[in-house]
Design a protein around this nucleic acid. Structure first.
Lengths: 357, 357
DNA sequence: GCTCAGGATGAAAGCGCTTTCATGGAGGGT
DNA sequence: ACCCTCCATGAAAGCGCTTTCATCCTGAGC
């Protein structure tokens, strides 16, 4: 390569914009200049086209398209005090029901031009406060939370931020807060009632962790209530609390069997736990439902496909996300929605329950 | 209640700030004033405490704590040109592997003070462009995407935005883009190789949708390659492409059986599809693995617990999210990372495969 | 004791947009 | 023809923060 051409190449190279700190894409002022209008008119044409003469409007829109204009969200948020983002805080996305409802939530708000910020706290209420704080800091216009159990700091933070928030997967009976869900207690009682009607009298239960988890707690309480109405009780030694997971559930169920407890009905806090129990029962040659009836909660897809198909409570998981989105959007828009929204859930009787053998 | 006290009450009531447009929590200038320092010093004390005298610093930090100061993300982003948010775009969170890796990603970046924005496109490449555009507009500092198949518009947008982005769940052999994952083709070939070694010669396959999905396509290609090396082939009529879902998989497998095709090995594009096939096989009285060998891909928790336990490719799902996070954080911080990162995956042989009966 | 380096702080200029508020011109009523 | 209203547009003031740049003070070096 000769000196001249070499120099030439280098000149060319240096002409390229540096990759870092490169001038970001066109700003609104560039669009305005290109269209021959003022900044304010350009802003209006894009935000509320009705405010601008059709001719002007299309000139501006053309310019924006030509320049590949992408609005600067932070600037917009700063000036307008709305970020058009919504925060969702879930225990974990590893649980398919939270993943599915979050998916539905995201899908719905995207339709209205909103973006979802997600955080998870892995069932740690103090971690949740931090997550929410991060979301508030990002200026979310609203926050969707799971359950009713939260740190007092959480409530303080939320009150101070003065943004709408909503609890899901449970309804706040006190009507103090906005909530969307169903009564975990009643639903669980419904399951127990079904088993009672089949003739079961000896129960056991596998539950998720109940500390800091009102849903799990209410489900246990619901079963106890239903039994109590029949003069029966569910002793603590027959209620196993375990962390989430199929293999953990298998192990727990195994322990329960090994402990020598006698029972004909096993109520599980959710489908995954029930599946674990079903798997362990099969491994041990326990016939379900002949020797043992098993129930779940959630009605994940597998529940209906598994053999034996699982008797469980059907939850309209996607609806929860979607309706939460709609209630949130309405409130952000200044609308009013009922303080609490009850989602219908129902028992699906399948092959895993039958009268005691 | 007397007239005086009544008036008193009302005055009190009116004194409350209105719920809407209430002055948001303390601003940095409030903190600065409370601490008796300038705005800049307050900013420094919070952003980089080392720049400020210990005494001053603690006065400022105290004031911030006392006032419950929460920084205004948009203002900060506008001034600093960094939003400390990262975007993740997945096909859908309904798929547990994406939910799990997203969870790990979120968890890791939260440790560094970053917040996750998520979007999903349900396997629609044009929808993906919109989602990414929304994220760019929100000023994310980086974007994590799934797979290698994307719209040209997507690449244009990303190039223009000049922010780091990374593809996951596959490695870009051309090394043009940053990518993190493994070779879906090799992994699938590995599965086929295992079955070939067991003595299988007649294969069938159930795959996810291959259009716009390089992972699914590569898995099919990998199986074909492995067979070809043995002079065998996998005719199209034995490759069923279906949408995601256990019941869809059951139905598809049923159709395959009804079509009269004869095969001793069924390769499935992922574990959920395999589970569907296993369930249908059980329902039809087909013994696995005696009459039919079945394989999956992903190694979800259920794969190892199910009966028969599923032979599958183990993917370190959480690692993918975590490492993607770490690579992204490094790049945002100005660091360098290898263009592509290969994640080790391996075959887990369980009870669903055996020599042909 | 005087100079100069260096560190702590303050002043002020934006970041890119929205949103009053002001202005000017067109159209309607009389 | 005149006045008033209404509507399209423009000018300009921030939104709350970061970040130069300038300033002041302290202390080391001679």
């Amino acid at each position: 390569m000769g000196a001249f051409s070499g120099a030439c190449f280098y000149t060319g190279r240096h002409g390229e914009p540096p990759l870092v700190n490169r001038r970001p894409s066109a700003r609104l002022s560039d669009v305005a200049r290109a269209a021959g209008v003022s900044l304010s008119t350009a802003s209006r044409a894009l935000a509320d086209p009705g405010l601008v003469l059709p001719a002007t409007r299309s000139r501006i829109q053309d310019a924006a398209a030509r320049l590949g204009y992408v609005p600067h969200g932070a600037a917009r948020a700063l000036a307008s005090r709305r970020s058009r983002t919504i925060g969702a805080v879930v225990p974990t996305l590893d649980n398919p029901i939270f993943a599915a409802s979050t998916q539905a939530l995201q899908h719905r708000i995207a339709r209205d031009g909103y973006t979802l910020l997600v955080g998870s706290h892995e069932y740690d209420l103090e971690a949740e406060v931090k997550v929410v704080s991060a979301l508030v800091e990002r200026g979310v216009d609203g926050i969707v939370l799971v359950g009713l159990d939260h740190s007092p700091d959480l409530h303080r933070l939320l009150a101070k931020a003065a943004i709408p928030f909503e609890f899901t997967w449970a309804t706040d009976a006190s009507q103090i807060h906005y909530s969307l869900g169903f009564s975990n207690r009643l639903a669980a009682a419904h399951v127990a009632q079904h088993l009672l009607e089949l003739g079961h009298r000896e129960f056991a239960m596998i539950s998720g962790q109940t500390t800091s988890n009102d849903r799990a707690r209410e489900r246990v309480a619901g079963v106890r209530e239903a039994l109590a109405a029949h003069g029966l009780e569910l002793p603590s030694r027959r209620v196993l609390e375990i962390a989430f997971g199929i293999s953990a559930a298998r192990a727990a169920f195994g322990r329960l069997l090994d402990s020598g407890e006698r029972f004909t009905a096993l109520v599980c806090g959710n489908d995954l736990l029930a599946l674990g129990a079903l798997l362990e029962a099969a491994a041990r040659g326990i016939a379900v439902p002949r020797q043992l009836s098993v129930t779940g909660f959630d009605d994940i897809e597998l529940a209906g496909e598994f053999s034996p198909a699982l008797t469980t409570i059907h939850l309209p998981v996607a609806d929860i996300g979607r309706i939460a989105a709609e209630r949130m959007l309405a409130r952000i828009g200044g609308g009013e929605v009922p303080k609490s929204h009850e989602i219908p859930v129902h028992l699906v009787v399948r092959a895993s329950t039958a009268p005691p053998g």
